[in-house]
Amino acid sequence: MSYKIEPIKTHQDPQVCEIIKKVGAEFGAVGEGFGPSDAEVNAMSQHYKNEDASCYLVATIEEKIVGGSGIAAFNGSDEICELRKLFLLAESRGLGLGKKLTEDCLAFAKVQGYKQCYLDTLTNMTSAISLYEKLGFIHLDTPLAGTIHSGCDVWMLKTL
């Protein structure tokens, strides 16, 4: 099965929003303090732009959007970025898309000059946590100061 990964386009915002909310609900990430409730979810293409040292990548299989992931500055930092909103529909998991999206986001982050990458997630997102560990993220005991996702209970950091 072939897939394509490319930067989000404006016309893809509604489908990406739907995926983020659907997958978030699947894992209990609903309400204040969770990524799917962030205002940016309604128009991801407007919040992730290269000129802002950020990007959101969309994965498609046979022209159908199946998920995405993004990178942006963490709390306005020039040195720490955040891996954001890696969400994949169930039918597209296990194909290596999560790994490819994350690797592409981290490569973008390095080019932008970020030194570290932070993320927060949920304990029940075991496949994602395993992926992050394999890619060199280490667990933190507490979230970085300034995180907006108070509902998350796993925090990780990687040196780029």
Score class of each variant (00 low, 15 high):
Leu88Ala: 07
Pro143Ser: 02
Leu106Met: 11
Thr10Pro: 06
Ile65Val: 09
Glu40Leu: 09
Ser37Cys: 05
Ala25Arg: 09
Tyr56Gly: 01
Thr10His: 14
His11Gly: 15
Asn42Thr: 13
Leu122Lys: 07
Gly70Leu: 00
Val111Asn: 08
Phe27His: 07
Gln12Cys: 09
Leu95Cys: 08
Ala43His: 02
Ala109Glu: 07
Gly28Ile: 05
Ile8Trp: 01
Phe74Glu: 03
Gly96Phe: 04
Asp78Val: 06
Ala128Leu: 01
Ala90Gly: 05
Thr159Cys: 04
Leu101Asn: 05
Leu101Val: 10
Thr102Ala: 05
Gly96Cys: 08
Tyr3Ala: 09
Lys21Phe: 03
Glu103His: 02
Arg84Lys: 09
Leu89Trp: 03
Gly31Arg: 00
Val41Lys: 03
Asp13Asn: 12
Gly98Ser: 08
Arg93Trp: 11
Lys64Thr: 15
Ile20Leu: 12
Gly151Tyr: 00
Tyr56Leu: 10
Val30Arg: 08
Leu97Ala: 04
Ile5Val: 13
Pro7Thr: 15
Gln15Trp: 09
Val23Ala: 01
Cys17Glu: 13
Tyr3Glu: 04
Lys9His: 08
Thr123Lys: 09
Asp52Cys: 15
Phe108His: 06
Val30Lys: 06
Gly76Trp: 05
Val111Ala: 14
Glu82Thr: 14
Asp120Arg: 00
Leu101Cys: 07
Leu57Gln: 07
Lys9Trp: 05
Asp104Met: 07
Gly76Thr: 07
Asp104Ala: 13
Gln15Asn: 15
Glu32Leu: 12
Phe34Asp: 03
Thr159Trp: 13
Tyr118Leu: 05
Ser54Cys: 12
Gly33Trp: 08
Thr123Gly: 04
Glu18Ala: 14
Leu135Cys: 13
Gln112Pro: 12
Lys100Thr: 10
Glu62Arg: 05
Ala73Phe: 05
Phe34Gln: 07
Lys134Asp: 02
Gly67Phe: 01
Phe27Met: 01
Pro14Gly: 14
Ser69Val: 03
Asn50Cys: 13
Ala128Val: 00
Asp78Ile: 10
Ser54His: 09
Leu122Glu: 06
Val58His: 02
Leu122Pro: 04
Ser37Gln: 10
Asn75Gly: 08
Leu57Phe: 14
Gly67Ala: 03
Glu18Gln: 15
Ile80Trp: 00
Ala128His: 01
Ser2Arg: 13
Thr159Pro: 06
Tyr132Trp: 09
Glu79Asp: 14
Gly96Ile: 06
Asp78Phe: 15
Asp78His: 08
Gly113Lys: 15
Val154Cys: 05
Thr126Arg: 04
Tyr114Glu: 05
Gln46Ala: 11
